[in-house]
């Protein structure tokens, strides 16, 4: 049960981090419920016939689809348990969120809401207001998000330069340097230097549906190494031993509390805002 809860929370955090649109989505569902209640549950005579006509034109099934998908599939422990049994790789649960058609329902909700307003002036103000709100809540340029797209871009670039410098320094002692990198940086580590920086495993090791039939080529221990790199606070000594065994000269880890200056055979070489780069001594 705890595992299911954790998977649900991981999926939710993934959604939350990519924008603050979950709240808008829930608001859109709320609008659908209000209209449905007004149409089927409330027999009061209409005060404003134009608004009543507009309400009649609103189609409720997209809201119903969104609500049922959310309750029956996306946040349903049974569906998550089944998915986890069928394909026990983290990340699959996140994909369930694509069922919600979140952006679609938000935009549909806004247009429906605007159609309920009487005056044209009100409509114009609400359109501009919503446009501003969407911009402010988004993850790319929004003021509310912790880090926007530009900041992520700058951070990855900084880490890439630092890794390149570390690789250059290590090249004197070990020309065939192999790098261990966390999943959040793995792809950036390898590709831009055209083979100069080699990684021990690709993302096909841990990503569902990406194996291309070549996942067999990795030894089973690599999954253990991957887990250790992803959770850097634990088993650093063991990670060091495994890294030495597979001839890795650089270990890159995400920044964590209580980071040591050295562990096993590795010593801290570079430190960027998000990543720590340890080199073989």
């Amino acid at each position: 049960m705890q595992m299911i809860w954790e998977m649900m929370m991981t999926a939710f955090n993934g959604v939350k981090e990519s924008g603050s649109y979950v709240l808008f989505y829930l608001l859109a569902l709320g609008l659908g419920l209000i209209v449905a209640w007004d149409r089927y549950g409330n027999s009061k005579s209409p005060d404003n016939w134009m608004v009543e006509e507009a309400k009649k034109k609103i189609q409720l099934w997209p809201f119903l689809f969104g609500l049922l998908s959310l309750l029956l599939i996306v946040v349903n422990p049974v569906s998550i348990w089944i998915l986890n049994r069928l394909s026990p790789i983290q990340g699959n649960v996140e994909k369930l969120w694509s069922l919600l058609l979140m952006l679609f329902l938000i935009a549909y909700g806004v247009v429906c809401f605007i159609s309920l307003l009487g005056e044209q002036r009100q409509k114009n103000i609400v359109v501009v207001g919503f446009a501003l709100l969407i911009g402010l809540a988004g993850s790319n340029y929004g003021l509310l998000s912790e880090r926007n797209g530009e900041e992520v871009y700058e951070s990855q670039k900084e880490a890439q330069v630092a890794l390149y410098d570390a690789r250059k320094e290590m090249a004197v002692r070990r020309p065939e340097a192999i790098v261990l990198a966390p999943a959040s940086f793995l792809e950036y580590a390898g590709i831009y230097y055209n083979g100069y920086i080699r990684v021990l495993y690709g993302k096909d090791l841990y990503t569902p549906n990406l194996d291309l039939g070549i996942v067999d080529a990795y030894p089973e221990e690599f999954l253990g190494i991957y887990q250790m790199v992803e959770n850097p606070g634990e088993n650093l000594e063991l990670l060091s031993e495994m890294a030495v065994l597979y001839d890795c000269s650089i270990i890159m880890l995400e920044d964590f509390e209580g980071k040591p200056d050295s562990f096993g055979s590795y010593v801290l070489m570079e430190e960027t805002g998000d990543y720590l780069i340890y080199g073989y001594q």
């Binding site: 993934g14 996140e94 994909k95 952006l103 935009a107 247009v111 969407i134 993850s139 340029y141």
Partner: peptide, 20 residues
């Protein structure tokens, strides 16, 4: 509606399974 969809994509990134 399409303008709002585009604005959501532009400012909140384009997410399928919602991950950024």
């Amino acid at each position: 509606f399409v303008c709002l969809m585009e604005l959501l994509i532009l400012s909140g990134d384009y997410f399928t399974g919602a991950a950024g």
